Simulated scan of single mutants.
Amino acid sequence: MNYTEETYFLDFNNPKIKGITSQFININSKTELIESLYIYVRDNWRYSPFNIGLKKEHFKASNIADKKDGHCIDKAIVYITCLRAFNIPARLHLAKVSNHIATERLEKIIGTNQLAPHGLVDVFHNNKWVKCSPAFNKELCKLYNVDTLEFNGTKDSVLQEFNKSNDKFMSYLEDYGAFEDVPLDFIKETFKSNYPNFYDKYKNLDQIII
């Protein structure tokens, strides 16, 4: 498998993505580049699970770049695309998680605090795959009293299990594995199987804002 290729979803030659990556072309260290791009994606799109799309175009990096916020898969796609622009192998990793804090709005709509699929990023650096989550921006972490995740490709950096008060924050429930490209059909089937009523109600809309 080739984890540096451009695809329909990971369109790093699009001018919108080049507008992002051009800001980092003078960084010579791959470790520093991985870190700088991670921070950019983490903090330049507010995390929001409430703006969802289930059509092909919603998962295209250049379209996500136009948004002011994004859910975990959105932000993972942008980060992977930017890394591949610099020939750094990267792939989407999907999982099922539960969120234990500030989920009242989400639970009221989908009936659970479990999110599936949740998007992570695997990066190949120093001859090994390492995992990260660029989903939660710094402001959100401050709001919910959790440590802001940092990442430079040297070790895994995934969602926070506890907040700073030692209250349960996030749990990983199931690992769906890694994907060379965005697996749209798998994402839709996972969404449908976890939230069948919600899926049937909104599947034909161009955009879901909940």
Rank of each mutant, 00 (worst) to 15 (best):
E6W: 07
T7Q: 05
I17S: 02
I17Y: 02
K18N: 07
I25K: 14
I25E: 14
N28P: 00
T31G: 15
E32R: 11
E32H: 12
L33A: 05
L37I: 14
Y40H: 15
N44E: 12
W45Y: 14
F50Q: 11
F50L: 14
I52L: 15
K55H: 13
S62V: 03
D66Q: 14
D69Y: 12
K75L: 06
V78R: 00
V78I: 15
Y79A: 10
I80L: 10
T81D: 10
L83R: 04
N87G: 12
L94M: 11
A95H: 01
V97R: 02
N99I: 13
H100T: 05
T103H: 11
K108W: 03
G111A: 03
L115I: 15
A116M: 13
H118W: 09
V123H: 01
N126F: 09
N127Y: 09
C132A: 01
A135Q: 00
F136G: 00
C141D: 06
G153Y: 08
K155C: 08
L159W: 05
E161V: 13
S165Q: 13
N166K: 15
S171F: 01
L173A: 03
G177Y: 13
I187K: 00
K188H: 06
F191Y: 07
F198H: 02
Y202R: 09
Q207T: 04
I208M: 05
